[in-house]
């Protein structure tokens, strides 16, 4: 489903961040990426989504065979890519529910489906929000404005649930969540698991992976995947840190 080959990328000023990433995620698989602060995890996610400010200097990334780097950010979303951001952006004055309806309808339109009117949308929104413990009050407010850290992460998860992506990249969606919220969000993710949907879960904590059990775990260090393994690799990291994986 997702194929990243020899990806090298950095900032526009020439600073290198990613130094040759190879990663293949098959349909229905869950991959986890762990790695020290500043190793390039979010950068990888941002580059896949098409955030500006980065230069790809080598390599490729395809989703279902389509070249992501040839697409605008919204086209990547339409193709089924979703990034739950580590730091969701506050958008004053834009009502959360309006934002969600616009996003859902944009995707439906591209897929040739009729747009949902306010009534139909609100029905679906309510149902999915309830599962994630998100009340009406939050949906009435402006996108992420005044949301607590945990509320922001729940809201990212709600967006994922509504947009039903092919590939969801979750960038530290567990950080800032209390234990109960962690379980709710993880259940939300697990409810979406299906043979034709894949996940790339970026996390610092093995704990999340108890809930969302990964098929593969990769260690990213200094812009490279230095080790890949099964879920036991996460336990190893939890116990002994990253020192032994540090790129030479």
């Amino acid at each position: 489903m997702l194929d990243i080959k020899g990806l090298q990328a950095g900032l526009e000023d020439g600073t290198e961040i990613l130094k040759g990433i190879n990663l293949s995620i098959g349909a229905g698989e869950v991959h986890a990426i762990m790695g020290p602060n500043g190793s390039g995890k979010s950068t990888t996610a941002n580059i896949l989504s098409g955030k500006s400010g980065y230069d790809v200097t080598a390599g490729s990334a395809t989703l279902d065979g389509a070249d992501l780097f040839e697409m605008e950010p919204e086209e990547r979303a339409h193709a089924g890519l979703f990034q739950a951001f580590q730091y969701p952006v506050e958008i004053p004055g834009v009502q959360a529910s309006t934002f969600l309806q616009t996003a859902v309808n944009a995707k439906r339109k591209v897929a040739g489906l009729p747009e949902l009117d306010a009534l139909a949308f609100v029905r679906e929104l309510r149902a999915k929000a309830k599962q994630l413990g998100i009340g009406n009050d939050m949906l009435k407010r402006a996108v992420n404005v005044g949301f607590s850290g945990g509320e922001k992460k729940r809201f990212e998860t709600l967006q994922m649930a509504l947009l039903e992506p092919r590939l969801a990249v979750l960038d530290e969606t567990d950080s800032g969540l209390d234990v109960d919220a962690l379980r709710v969000v993880a259940e939300g993710v697990n409810a979406l698991r299906s043979p034709d949907r894949s996940f790339l879960v970026i996390t610092h904590y093995q704990r999340l992976l108890d809930y969302i059990v990964p098929d593969y775990v990769h260690i990213l260090s200094d812009g490279k995947i230095v080790k890949s393994g099964d879920k036991s690799l996460a336990l190893e990291v939890e116990q002994s840190g990253y020192a032994e994986f540090e790129a030479a």
Binding site: K51, V89, I91, G93, T102
Partner: peptide, 25 residues
């Protein structure tokens, strides 16, 4: 706000609609 624009586009909202939402706000 470029960050807000990107956030919306990453959710599939095209550039023109994302701009309109921000200007309206």
């Amino acid at each position: 706000d470029a960050e807000a624009l990107f956030y919306m586009r990453a959710r599939g909202i095209d550039d023109a609609a994302a701009r309109a939402l921000l200007i309206l706000a």
